[in-house]
Design a binder for these strands. Sequence first.
DNA 1: TAGCAATTGCTAAGCACTTAGGTATTATGA
DNA 2: TCATAATACCTAAGTGCTTAGCAATTGCTA
Lengths: 163, 163
Amino acid sequence: MADHVDRILTQWHSEKPDLDVSPMAVIGRLNRAAIAVESRLADTFARHALDSASFDVLATLLRSGAPYRITPVELARDAMISTSAVAQRLNKLETRGLVRRAANPNDGRGTLVTLTDSGRELIEAALPDHLETEHAIIAALSVEEQSNLAALLQRIHDAASSS
Amino acid sequence: MADHVDRILTQWHSEKPDLDVSPMAVIGRLNRAAIAVESRLADTFARHALDSASFDVLATLLRSGAPYRITPVELARDAMISTSAVAQRLNKLETRGLVRRAANPNDGRGTLVTLTDSGRELIEAALPDHLETEHAIIAALSVEEQSNLAALLQRIHDAASSS
DNA sequence: TAGCAATTGCTAAGCACTTAGGTATTATGA
DNA sequence: TCATAATACCTAAGTGCTTAGCAATTGCTA
């Protein structure tokens, strides 16, 4: 059952026997698991002519509910990226006719991003497929293990964020 | 205890009550935890004038043991990046005098990358600091929870990779 | 209420990755 | 053995992020 991370730990043990490299067992696997999942999800996105970044924007608009209209700042907060990255994502999506930008009547500085009909059709079609892929991955764990994993990840997240 | 992922799930429930979005609870937190950890580790790397990519190369060379000499192909496999990305990482590190490239006497096509003395000093200094940061993060979990988490992540990794 | 600070959203430039493609060398098998 | 395939490594170009910086508007406060 030795995986890549195990081999790295073994190498460290023989080269630096005095160092406690046990944290790498967790953090190394966290990284690799995240990369493997992301890569698997990308296949599904590609089948719908999307990438992870575009899916993210369209899904955020969809789950905001009718009239599917939010600000770039909200998109940035939600995706944990800069507002500049949002602007560039929106440029791409607007060119494809999947979203539309309009002036925010309540804030002269602001913009409101709306899902177009064709954008909504696309994300409504991609979403069930995406969920099926996610389900196929986490089905490797029992329901109890899933909630266990989610709780542990949340605590790691908090520990990494604090300070 | 409601975090960002909980709020996203709540939004989906009210907008698409028929969809089972429970996989997002795990995969969403996997992503966010990995990003938070990566960001925390980056601070430590920066204190040693390194980034994650450079640290990765130097650490791989160090743990290979004396004479700290491996091929770009091995580096690519280990870091799960293209050999082209390795070439660019090495260009940077070689300019800084942290690694050195030489022809592989056993393979006319090949190159051998060696850790220079100054590269070795740098990584030997950064490594304990890095491990301390990793330890500070995973100390949020008991030892048993840590090995539990590592095992669950390995299974998620395998599930995402297969097929 | 005038002026300064904060916010919003954009483009430009820089960075690290990817894929594409080139060159050189080694391995294969007809 | 010799043509062809595979491998190793690189640069170039494209992509999507970041930070820097700009212009416009709004919010705060003296």
